[in-house]
Design a protein around this nucleic acid. Structure first.
Lengths: 221, 221
DNA sequence: ACGACTTTGTGAAGGGAGGCACAAAGTCGC
DNA sequence: GCGACTTTGTGCCTCCCTTCACAAAGTCGT
């Protein structure tokens, strides 16, 4: 289960991947004081088609009113509930290099309810440093963090060489969700979900499209 | 054209998205001195099925030898060519907050042939600072960078409020590929490709799966 | 030189996702 | 209270992606 997980019955993975976008748009609307929104408007704000939006939402239930639209706050809390954001999800970041430090300082986590409860590093020369106001802990602390603070999500920001080892320790400690920034394919047991974010991959995909459009332009200028 | 672009004839988008992974695996194999690899082995190293790998590669051409496998170096350069990595792709990073600085210091870009040629920021108090050995330039320099240095890819690492403005300036200067780290949907003309990377979205998807498996466990302990 | 073996490349089948279009359902004006 | 109007929820259709399975093709041993 690396990228696409089978969702036996319920919400298709493709839908789940779009829900955060809807939630984001709804939060922005609520901030503007808008209380009601149509599928057309919300879809435009989320960058999808209105038909797709309605189908996605229909998987969660019927929270709209025909002829009117959706109540912004109600829909936001329904989506949040579907995503499991009513409980909190303690996060630990492993690897205090450039990326790890930037992630530790990033405010976006807290804003969306993800509490970073620990920063860790394998290198004992880094352990004890203070990053973004938190002490860097050794990997040995992982089991305690899971047991006592309910650590649920691990973010891997190590160099590629150390990523599998870091992942193994997270999994051994009981973490079942991993966000991996290292450019490697992680091997994990069945019950662990991994999502990969790789900058080089994204750039290479952009390069492909850039090249394509350049070719298309040369053919038909 | 925000995430999925129609590829008239040629390589399907889903395949393109996996090519960087194959390239990464091949590079690692080459570094180990391995010169020949079967679809089964390469697929395992890339985290996909062998059938999918073969089909993906078949879109590029027939570079394997039946009964033997693929020549690692040959295949790597064919994939690199397909992705357009034979030419270089100058990159500019816009937004010198935490994330922007981390990206500027990240070595992964250069390793895969993406040259960061400029760091920019809209805030004149930041312009002139030195980050990772490069001076931070004002947004006004964008047209020159495109014209004189062939700037092709823009990375947006600004806060959400400034992302659309930053994108507009990139597009106005002639950039046609954008990697967006801000949590907003960017509006761009038809010919511009945008790829989004959002940490909160990824965490929320992980939360969904985490919640799901927790529920499944409660039902069947 | 030939047969057994290995592995690729691909035709066909199966499944899922997105888009279309419309019926259902509710609101608003009169 | 009723008809016109708006917008949701969904059945259906299409297309693309993934997987299966096998024929084609090349190697290696004898």
């Amino acid at each position: 289960m690396s990228t696409a997980a089978a969702t036996p019955r319920g919400v298709p993975d493709a839908s789940v991947a779009r829900l955060p976008g809807y939630l984001r748009a709804l939060t922005a609307l609520a901030a503007e004081g808008i209380g009601l929104v149509s599928s057309e408007e919300l879809a435009a704000a989320s960058g999808v088609s209105s038909a797709m939006l309605r189908k996605d939402l229909s998987h969660l239930g019927s929270y709209g009113v025909r002829g009117v639209g959706y109540d912004v706050e109600r829909l936001a809390s329904e989506i949040a509930a579907a995503l499991g954001l009513t409980q909190d999800w303690p996060v630990a970041i492993v690897g205090m290099g450039n990326l790890g430090r930037a992630l530790a300082a990033y405010r976006g986590f807290a804003e969306r309810g993800f509490r970073v409860i620990a920063l860790l590093d394998h290198d004992e020369r880094v352990v004890g440093d203070e990053v973004a106001g938190c002490p860097v802990l050794p990997m040995e602390d992982l089991p305690t963090l899971v047991a006592e603070q309910g650590l649920a999500i691990g973010v891997i920001a190590t160099p590629p060489e150390g990523a599998q080892a870091a992942c193994d320790r997270l999994v051994a400690a009981g973490v079942r969700s991993v966000l991996n920034f290292a450019a490697v394919v992680l091997a994990v047991p069945e019950h662990v979900t991994v999502r990969n974010v790789d900058l080089s991959t994204e750039l290479q995909i952009l390069a492909f499209h850039g090249q394509r459009s350049a070719v298309a332009e040369a053919v038909a200028p």
